[in-house]
Amino acid sequence: MKTLAAPVAGAVGFILLWQVAVWLRVADPILLPPPAEAFTDTWAALVRGTLALDTWRTVQRTMLSFLIATAIGVPLGVALGAKESVYRSVEFVVDFFRSTPASAMFPLFIVLFGPGESTKIAVAAFGAALVILFNAAYGVINARRTRVLAARIMGASGPRIMADVLVWEALPQILVGMRAGVSLALVIVVVAEMFIGSTDGLGHRVINAQMLFESGLMYGTIFVAGALGYALNLLFLLIEKRFVHWAGR
């Protein structure tokens, strides 16, 4: 109970501050509706099913791009990490594109994949794959040398050392990369839903509500997107705790 008390107090405080701002008329009520109104509008949209569908579509796109990113990033990162000289030669390119805002890549990906669904998935997968690859490679590069030597002296071959030691050594870092990757995929998907011809998704709903002056719904959608990001992060933290029980011990 005690661990819950602090975050709950923080959330209540935030809503109170919002309510006070409304009472003080800090902004036009059309732009800043009271929290209760935002809640009822959002609840109504959820019950009608439109917002629920938008949430589901965003989750779908995020998970699909995340899965593609993992399928590419983990094996490639592990393979590159195992050959440090090779990784050093591609490191600059990886770092460069990792630092490039994914939104700057939209036009390029639209040319490559057309203005439809596949572009959103591709950009998000691209961004997330680089983060996952980078972490997987570093996980392997930073593997404890003693463990590799121990496996070698017990007669493990190169591929065996890869499967029995290096992948496990890198696993904590791989999961950190996957957690960062899924968060990034969500960010890119929501932005893509706003600007690349969409008819659904949380990004589409936010910008639509804004244009129609449905402020309550706009705030509500923002919070749903926030809750989604928070939940995904929490989920991956739990997975990390469960599957890399040895990390840091």
Binding site: R147, L149, A150, D164
Partner: peptide, 11 residues
């Protein structure tokens, strides 16, 4: 090895 912490496989 001297450092058992780094020689055993913790997984």
């Amino acid at each position: 090895f001297q450092n058992y912490r780094e020689a055993l496989f913790p997984w």
